[in-house]
């Protein structure tokens, strides 16, 4: 995992690309929604999550690319490292990576959607973290699959987005509520859904990862 982070820091390019992508997504949405709707917190929350899904996808593809370059993933599989440990490490790296992208996206969202940096940000943070855990857990597992098939870069969103829908619905709703200044209690159900999604997919990834990275 430390190696993944160092790789990211070293190349730097993907982090930048991620931020640029988040910015572009937000810009496109601002234009697409029109000035009137840009005032609403619903639009802001939606845009934020769109940016997040895109960033997560890009990040997952990138992380796998590093392993694919010289067949390094084989080197890892050959080592005494347990596939589940490998999954945990990859997940942590993806998570940190996504968290950085999220911070960037939130700042941009506040600027573009005329919001304020206030207490609502503190309530938004745990929601975004839950979303990032779920998405990273899913994308790390799926990118190990799509990374080893033809046309895999296209397949990742096709597989990941439908499965991510429940967390996406819950995340958007909870984020909009948080931005509107609602207290935590009012979004209990959404948070529960996100926690359930996270628990389920981290466990699934942990258990199933060995089957997707195993020999051909």
């Amino acid at each position: 995992m430390r190696k993944d982070l160092r790789l990211e820091l070293r190349s730097g390019e993907s982090t930048l690309a991620l931020l640029a992508l988040s910015m572009l997504v937000l810009v496109v949405l601002v234009f697409a929604l029109g000035a009137a709707r840009v005032r609403s917190v619903d639009a802001a929350a939606g845009a934020l999550w769109v940016a997040m899904v895109f960033a997560g996808m890009l990040g997952a593809n990138r992380a796998l690319l590093a392993e694919r370059d010289n067949g390094a993933i084989r080197g890892l599989l050959l080592s005494p490292l347990d596939p589940s440990t490998l999954y945990a490490a990859k997940l942590c790296a993806a998570l940190i990576f996504m968290a950085v992208a999220e911070v960037g996206a939130v700042i941009l969202m506040v600027l573009f959607f005329n919001l304020d940096f206030d207490a609502s940000m503190a309530r938004l943070a745990p929601i975004l973290v839950l979303g990032a855990i779920g998405f990273s857990a899913l994308a790390t597992l799926l990118s190990a699959i799509t990374g080893r098939t033809r046309g895999g870069d296209m397949l990742l969103p096709i597989l990941a987005v439908p499965i991510f829908v429940p967390a996406l619905i819950a995340g958007v709703k909870a984020s909009a509520a948080a931005l509107a200044g609602a207290p935590f209690e009012s979004m209990g159900d959404w948070l529960k859904i996100m926690i359930a999604f996270d628990v389920l997919f981290v466990t699934a990834g942990y258990l199933l990862f060995e089957h997707v990275v195993g020999g051909e």
């Binding site: 160092r6 790789l7 590093a66 010289n70 067949g71 390094a72 084989r74 050959l78 005494p80």
Partner: peptide, 20 residues
């Protein structure tokens, strides 16, 4: 794992990270 660690493979692909 304890048997895997006693095998060293040098394959066609170098297993090295080009950015490190």
């Amino acid at each position: 794992a304890r048997y895997r660690r006693r095998i060293g493979l040098m394959a066609h692909q170098s297993f090295l990270y080009p950015n490190l």
